[in-house]
Design a protein around this nucleic acid. Structure first.
Lengths: 368, 368
DNA sequence: CTGAAAGCGCTTACAG
DNA sequence: CTGAAAGCGCTTACAG
């Protein structure tokens, strides 16, 4: 029962050329020791035959799989797509593949997920730890993306500095009473962001923090945050520590008839997909995920190299020189001067119509 | 230069027990041919030594990698997390790993992504094709998740039926003039959904379709859809074909001072993360992604088996008996009877305060 | 500059 | 019921 071969192997190329497999290997890997002419012939023949190297065989031989694991705290997190995309790109750029593992927000599952990845022989892994979790030393290099203030962190966005950006922005707008909105008291990311916002606001601003303990759970649905009361109490700035909370705040305020941004400002974090399209568009701050991913992968590559050289298990958390990358403020319409009439905000209407309205839209065919 | 061994191999177990590696293999795989007692001894010794099988070696030997590829049209799609999670879980349940590939919404990149996966030796792949794209036969089994009406589709949510659910809901609420909102004319998914909504609304309802051509591009930001004019023109139902568009519609209407759901209803699609938390919470329809993923993976497993048996390349698109799975309507506050005062919707206030407000919130430490 | 040989860790006919 | 042997496709010292 011969295995179905999808493409020729090195021996086939070697046979076709009357040389040895070792020579084909050397020629293709470009590690020298083969005359330029022969190397060319080999390359040409390989292309001609549609040769695709077996990464599995290479992995078995070299002990390196060429695969990185990505474990995320909660795959349902709206930030996940961006992180996954950034890591996948960074990994692909250095010839690595990415195996995903979902930890479903659960600590036990996170450990299982890591083990599954280990069994599959990943050379290293990127983990975005579930909040309030530390990653133990496992059998391979690990790059942790959390916050700069977390022990064991490898690389992360500078959440504190991002918070400062928001704080300064709000104070410049003239806000003097700001409500911070977070969802998880035990999240390092959120605490850093909140610390940063307060620092950015400075001592002259009165602020309070509202923790929405379970934004997702049953009962979280449709439960209002009491923001209208806050407005009545004099709050004019609402700085959510995530775009999801910001959206929640924005819609609640609008629903209560409170003008954003004429009367109050709302800001978020992370520049999630909806932030540019809601009305008013959400002021937020974004992470440079591409850079973070590049640095995380680079750190992993260094550790993997080192492990191979040192022969000893260089496994463990990996660190890199700059452990934080700056966040960037994106000012949109949801933040403006406090108080009625303070800003010349473009009134809602007339509405520019940028979309075409077909008279006879085409529909797909039903299959029933 | 011995490779760093993280765990003993079969030979080590065999040596420790004075038996052959073949016997260890047979005992561990449970494929019989080993006395129960010996098998037990082997298992115990394996556990004792912390044996972890090398999936790479197994892959090389059997020609099966135990890995599935997942290629997504646009990893930034907010639905991605749910799909990835569902596929990862379904795959893990049958002992498979999942390698991701990002096609960045680009057709050429989609092909590259597929090739990268192929080179890594995936046994099969799940692809959610970019809209208006067909997946050519590649060298391995492929499960396509698109729409039941798309040729080559393996399994998908019944988008048309989901649309019908929305249509019927709106017509029951009394809406007689409905605006459908979509973003991509060439999307089979959106066209099926729109067809379904129209079918559900029936002939008695007047409807029109608004295509927001580039919701993401520059210039899409903050550009209003002219919904207030639509309301003035008598539209009371706004059925978006995605929750993102629904959110856009909802906030635009709110911003214009139009009460949702007292005056108009807004509905979405997909039950994305924000739909339960906005105010008013979004009525939407959800796919049963877990079932879809299970069926896709099961179809792939069958094809992989068949390929091994048939010896010939059974590669190509895979089909399964039921190619569609029903969608489920989730009624929330954003949809209600049309016209002012028609519904006893709970007025915005007094606000129940379900969140605790700490006096001295703890902040993380700045690292500057 | 090129080749023969060994070996990564498994699984699988085949013999005993 | 158990073992010796071959081999998946590579890479890497080591000889020539």
């Amino acid at each position: 029962m011969a295995v179905v071969r999808q493409s020729p192997n090195m021996s086939a190329i070697a046979a076709a050329l009357g040389v040895s497999a070792a020579t084909v290997s050397n020629a293709l890997s470009g590690k020298g020791r083969v005359s330029p002419e022969l190397a060319d012939k080999v390359r040409i023949k390989a292309a001609e035959l549609g040769y695709v190297p077996s990464l599995t065989a290479r992995a078995l031989r070299t002990g390196r799989s060429g695969v990185l694991g990505l474990v995320l705290p909660d795959i349902a997190n709206p930030l996940f797509p961006q992180i996954a995309q950034a890591i996948e790109n960074a990994a692909a750029a250095v010839g690595y593949g990415v195996l995903i593992a979902d930890s479903r927000g659960d600590i036990a599952t996170q450990t299982e997920a890591i083990n599954r990845l280990l069994e599959r022989g990943v050379d290293g892994m990127v983990v975005v730890p579930r909040r309030a979790t530390r990653i133990a030393d496992i059998g391979c290099p690990v790059a942790v993306i959390d916050t700069p203030s977390t022990p064991g962190n490898t690389i992360a966005a500078d959440h504190w500095q991002g918070g400062e950006l928001i704080g300064r922005h709000l104070v410049q707008l003239g806000h003097r009473r700001v409500l911070l909105i977070g969802t998880h008291r035990d999240s390092n990311v959120q605490n850093d962001r909140i610390g940063g916002v307060k620092a950015g606001l400075g001592p002259g601003v009165d602020c309070d923090t509202l923790w929405i303990e379970k934004v997702e759970g049953e009962g979280g649905e449709g439960c209002l945050l009491g923001l209208a009361d806050r407005v009545a109490a004099g709050f004019t700035g609402f700085a959510a520590v995530s775009d999801l909370s910001a959206l929640r705040a924005l819609t609640e305020l609008q629903r209560a008839g409170i003008g954003v941004p004429e009367r109050v400002s709302v800001t978020g974090f992370d520049n999630l997909i909806w932030s540019p399209v809601v009305t008013p568009a959400l002021t937020t701050v974004r992470m440079d995920l591409a850079t973070i991913a590049d640095l995380a992968v680079a750190a992993l590559m260094r550790a993997i190299e080192a492990e191979a050289d040192a022969d000893g298990a260089g496994s463990g958390r990996v660190s890199s020189a700059p452990d934080r990358v700056a966040m960037q403020l994106i000012i949109r319409q949801s933040s403006g001067p406090p108080g009625p009439g303070a800003a010349p905000y473009p009134a809602p209407g007339p509405y520019p119509l940028h979309a075409k309205i077909p008279t006879h839209p085409t529909a797909g065919e039903p299959q029933a």
